[in-house]
Design a binder for these strands. Sequence first.
RNA 1: UGUCCCAUGGUGUAAUGGCAGCACUCCGGUUUUUGGUACCGUCAGUCAAGGUUCGAGUCCUUGUGGGACAACCA
Length: 568
Amino acid sequence: MSDTTHNEESIKESISFIEAFIKEDIKAGKVESHVCTRFPPEPNGYLHIGHAKAICMDFGMARKYNGQCNLRFDDTNPTKEDVEYVDSIKEDIHWLGFDWGKNEFFASDYFPRLFDFAKDLISRGLAYVDDQSAAEIAAQKGTPSEPGTESPYRSRSAEECLDLFERMNKGEFAEGSRVLRAKVDMSSPNMHMRDPIIYRIIKTPHHRTGENWKVYPMYDFAHGQSDYFEGITHSLCTLEFEVHRPLYNWFIDQLMDGSYRPRQIEFNRLNLTYTVMSKRKLLQLVEEGYVSGWDDPRMPTIAGMRRRGYTPRSIRNFVDKIGYTKVEAINDVSLLEHSVRDDLNKIAPRVNVVMNPLKVVITNYPEDKVEMMRIINNPEDETAGSREVPFSREIYIEREDFMEDPPKKFFRMGPGREVRIKGAYIVKCEDYKKDPETGEILEVYCTYDPETRSGLPGSNRKVKGLLHYVSVNHCVDVDVRLYDRLFMDVDPLGHKDKDFLEFINPDSLVLKTACKAEPSLMMAKPLDVFQFQRVGYFNVDPDSSSDKLIFNRTVALKDSWGKMQNPK
RNA sequence: UGUCCCAUGGUGUAAUGGCAGCACUCCGGUUUUUGGUACCGUCAGUCAAGGUUCGAGUCCUUGUGGGACAACCA
């Protein structure tokens, strides 16, 4: 017997460039005690699949290197933020399978220290109060290719600045009338270094600190310092912050008292084809009523995906597969859906559901007879057991499983053809009734072969077609709402200046379909996911009222999906 | 007309300077009481030109293409 483990050992683990940096830093002794990362959402919306990528990295590195990952709410702009979002963010991170323990922080916790640091910069001549308007400041900022010019207030005395800054915070001045700026370099080729604004006056109450403050720090003045206060070793963020890094480091240079400094490393943001990822646009969908809320099953939010039946593991696996690089990538949604199917396939019980019923009468089957047929719940998982499904003289099959004049490649029911009814008998189509006006098929008449009942030796006969069914007298109506993803006609990077709402695929709108279900489905609980035979994966919507089940389509099966995309 | 970042099949992602591999997609086949799953296979790639080197996807130079940055957003 050969030992197969050597194969696994010889497969080199491929790690991201970020992890390589972390390993380097550990080796170089730059990490004093343990790796410390942070996930820093602004509580101004729900988390979406893009955040999941950051969460997996931030918490993943901490977990792998026995470190810690702090949850820090970047709540420096009270005009946009709300506690509702704080709660949803925490729930979603937990659901994804990560935990920050006691390490929950708010940038607003650091307002006093940041305020003191700002005053310190003022007294050291490194910050000043500017009385100019936003337009004037912008004009002096120059352009990326031309240097800026210095503000007339740049040389204002520290005493005066200190006094004004304190009074700004007491509410003596109107919003927009004065700002505090860091004195860096107006001619820097990096726009962010041209005397960035670090404090502005905002009189909207803050969701945590109320009316304690009238001035609030800007992102650049809060983020790095917060990292420093918390002992973050690796501050991982997305590519667009790359140009902020020199400023991040500049503030830490002014702040640091020891050798420790956090290191900012940037990686690529997640983009998905046909998927709206911008928080601003998702907010618009919610506010303008295009969807029922942030957790609408069509939304690419974590909450929406949860309600739609995606599993946390499938999202983590997906993130694993797309990797972390510095390339601006557009990931194909089919990889996400593959990850979901891959996971669901192993765990989802199969059920017979007929979406669009066509009645089949088994003419040689006794009128009152009912047989309970035993059907495997999940061929991928023996432990999932089996269930009994009633079979009788009259059954429904899927309307699309019958064709009057079937082409060669059609393996299902047609005049004179034999097909197997799943878990029951092989039947032969003898005749059918058609509406002469509309051409609609009304009923199909079959005969069954009693020797071919599943489990009997006679059932070993090869038959091409296999149809799922429900018994007419035993089935129950349920509502199915076919939620599909919110589609866009364009790639996520290509629609910047257009009104994206135009691109919502009308097929994604809610459908209500009466369908026939087998009794076992009626035991379902909210969020349970099933595979509807040959149709797709569906889950019970948590919003279902007690007397009726509503299903969300999680993902379609592979082939049906293609059919939906290109209906003939 | 600035600074910074990036460039590997259709898509995403690997390769101490040493045989360009993996996954998804598409297409084809085998198995199957799901047109599902599983398994097998086909097609398909290092942006360009120089240079260093025994040897370059990798290092250097130049070019080309894409992106970020001119919010009192994060």
